[in-house]
Design a protein around this nucleic acid. Sequence first.
DNA 1: GGAGGAATGTTTTTT
DNA 2: ACATTCCTCC
Length: 763
Amino acid sequence: MQNLLHNLNPEQHAAVTLPAESALILAGAGSGKTRVLTTRIAWLIQTGQISPSALMAVTFTNKAAKEMQARLSAMLPLNTRSMWIGTFHGLCNRLLRAHYRDASLPQTFQILDSQDQLSMVKRILKANQIDDDKYPPRNVVYFINSAKEQGLRAAKVTTHDPISRQLAELYGIYEQQCQRDGVVDFAELLLRTVELMSSNQPLREHYQARFKHILVDEFQDTNDLQYRWIKLMAGTSSAVLAVGDDDQSIYAFRGANVGNMASFEREFLVRHRIKLEQNYRSHGHILDAANALISNNTERLGKNLRTDAGQGELIRIQEAASDREESQWLVEQIKELTRQGIASNQIALLYRSNAQSRVLEHALFSASLPYRVYGGLRFFERAEIKHAIAYLQLMDNPHNDSAFLRVMNFPARGIGAKGQETLQDCARQQGISLYAAVPYLTGKVGTTLGGFVKLIEAARFETQMLTLPELVQRVLEMSTLIQHYQTEKEGADRVENLEQLVSAAALFIVEEGFPNDAPALLGPAGTAQPILVQGEGIQILDADAALSTLMSPLSAFLSHASLEAGDNQAQVGQDALQLMTVHSAKGLEFDAVFITGLEEGLFPHENSAREPGGLEEERRLMYVAITRARQRLFISFAQTRMLHGQIRYNTKSRFLNELPEENVKWLSPQVRQNWFAPPKSAWDSEPGNAGSASYQTRKEHIPTVIPTNPDGWRTGLSVRHAKFGEGIIIKLEGSAGNYRAHIQFYKLGLKVLDLNIAKLEKV
DNA sequence: GGAGGAATGTTTTTT
DNA sequence: ACATTCCTCC
């Protein structure tokens, strides 16, 4: 046991060995948070305080859950598969599978991902002849998800105007449709579980008594519904260990509520708040800068990182004339770092928004520097995989209309738009699924659709005794998906992906511990029975958390496909530069980090100004970016940048002013922001600047085409306003004689003015 | 049913 | 600027 606690610093030690009561761990960046979490679990088990089945550990991402399981297995000989370690959604999925009847769900309920949810809403809008200009599908989805996050069903949503009344009605129709299809969206997994636990007392008490310890990772990212769920699972007797960092809360835009940390301390009567402030990642200058920056935020629990690593290198800051010159500069610096022996995959290029990656990629490509961009489509989100999954879904639950619609005419089998509409009308009239409505159709459409239904039934019949990978293989053939992509000229990659789906199925069976000869359609395969609560005679049998005890291999695989869309991340092992947004860099670390585009409007992003607390969230984002770096940190910005097809003139980010002078070194000379400058750079007017000689001749970086119009207004024009002072036009909207200008004022920031109204003087 | 052109929307993202 | 999605036409 002693060796578990070996090498922990005093705070870490205190956190790991906390008494069995609720506590908050404020874990700074690079302070060994995951280590504390896993060691805490191992310590609780090894000291005999609890059995592995008496604890639950919750994370946000599958990656984090897997990491925790891996580290735990390395510390103790445990079957982590059967332990309740997983994501919020994954654990709720397990609970709902075990108690599907009490949750009023079919045993084979399926999970809609965001794409499916959006298309379902579009379908509902169409079927109800709702103008989707007035009710954009994305907004409807947002409305539904926010309502669910507040724990509200359609009937409970308060409406105060016709718009919200209509939205609530759509929400109601959506709810019904999901229930009829036997599908749940991501928010529903949470909400359904919360409702199940609040309404079912024996069940609630069972779990509250069972889970003596609940550990929650990244607590600052929890939304209100997730917090409610934790409270329900914990009751009054469980010890909840909430681990998080309010300074790294960067997901308010998707419902995360940092306030949950304060609520947690209050509601769980927390007596122990432990701060992990010893940082094992970054050198001193980097940490000092991060601490200074974040101290500008007012709403903090308070924390200051420290290191033993020494001050290290100063943070380098570079001002470039344009985004292209910024990229050129990056290329030079990267080459230098590589010469110094830093591996490419230890160098990260971070940016605030994805649109910025293009210029960078272009420069890297031209310089033949290998790179990987994080983000983008994941394996299970690819169209061909979604199609294959839809066939599999129909075999498990033919009433899933989303799946039915996706593939009833793919590959094409002559069911046109009209036939599809007839079927949908019929299904709606009868209040049944599309699959069930097929027999009602007559004529040619009826025959063709009947053929499709027969295909699904034949597939189900033929594959009864096959294992999961065999079944997937067979379905790919029967559906003619493989054949379809083989004949398509650009289809080779897709065929390859489909084949990979078979391998993914084989791997899944092994990883989830299904017997490798288990028929895919039969299940649950394990011996443990789900926990059932039946009226009078309450029978609660403990099940472990392994999917193999709860679902058939096929059902389990389908959940997996929705809940774990696959790697979004570029291969870490590859020796290539790592390009990603600051958001996706959270949790990662690199020897050298470049943060690019530190410009007002970009970082902090202009849209954040509209949201309350937006600026502070942007600052936390910058804090996250800075704390990714171990040894070297570079920050750059550009005076002009191509954005949405227009040249933008930006001023340097306010965050640069918040970094202490003693921690930074300006590589470019600091010139006063050049307001009157034309789209020429400070570089041209000041020849001989350090390190710039080689770029001076590259005239192609200097923008020459300026959009103008008959009135003489153009972007980049310097203007004077009687009240606002001097500024520069960064964007023009509207048409000749009717312009609105976005003007970045020197003192007052961005304003949008109507040029017919505002009196502006050209400077 | 697919090719090609117009319209559209561009902060961040996991499940 | 550029990707995606919608729409039209053969």
